[in-house]
């Protein structure tokens, strides 16, 4: 009888050991999922596709919760099937999100470059307009406008700085502001030029 009990106990122990040995967390899949989410962030997903990225992060968190839950169970009852499934789908989604982010980023870059060009043209146009203004024009206004144009020219370099930092949203905002201001100054010059009739020689 004692021998039977011992045998049964041994068998149960063997089964438990075997079961415990089989249920291991899918470390590679989890690591791949984490890396894929990190990669998506590096591609700018949190900026260019924030909704998808937030869902992705949510999924990764759910994966970790499920992993923690399974790890908290007694070994024979651990089941990492869902963890693996989640890890695989997270990695797949992360790849798609990264791709979407890259595409959006390229679109934003193209838009920023176009806005930069428009701003540059607007500043050049103001420069040209000021150069055509007669010497005798209201000097005070000209000096004031020159100062404005210097500020606009300096601001153009900021657009490039933002593009270099891959902050395309800032670059677009800067370019649009410069364009708007340049147009206002152009209108001011044209208005002032309309009043001009004669020049003035002066040393002052």
């Amino acid at each position: 009888m004692k021998s039977m009990r011992q045998s049964a106990g041994f068998v149960i122990l063997l089964i438990l050991t075997a079961a415990a040995g089989c249920a291991k967390p899918p470390s590679d899949a989890i690591e791949a999922a984490e890396q894929a989410v990190k990669n998506a962030r590096e591609k700018g997903a949190n900026v260019y596709v924030p909704e998808e990225y937030a869902k992705l992060e949510g999924k990764l968190t759910a994966l970790k919760q499920e992993l923690a839950e399974q790890e908290g169970k007694f070994a024979p009852f651990q089941d990492y099937g869902k963890v693996e499934e989640l890890a695989t789908s997270t990695a797949q989604e992360a790849a798609m999100v990264a791709s979407a982010a890259s595409q959006k980023k390229e679109e934003a870059k193209a838009a920023a470059l176009q806005a930069q060009q428009v701003a540059q043209e607007a500043v050049t146009s103001v420069h040209d307009l000021l150069a055509r203004a007669p010497v005798g024009k209201d000097r005070a206004a000209i000096e004031s406008i020159k100062s404005d144009i210097e500020a606009l020219t300096a601001a153009l370099t900021q657009i490039q700085g933002s593009i270099d930092r891959e902050d395309y949203q800032a670059a677009q905002a800067q370019a649009k502001a410069i364009d708007e201001k340049s147009r206002a100054i152009s209108a001011e010059i044209q208005d002032a030029m309309a009043k001009v009739k004669a020049g003035k020689r002066s040393l002052k």
């Binding site: 937030a54 869902k55 992060e57 949510g58 999924k59 990764l60 968190t61 759910a62 919760q65 499920e66 989640l86």
Partner: peptide, 11 residues
């Protein structure tokens, strides 16, 4: 806040 919601929803 949204990530917490999304994580719970995914789980």
């Amino acid at each position: 806040a949204y990530t917490a919601f999304a994580a719970q929803w995914a789980a």
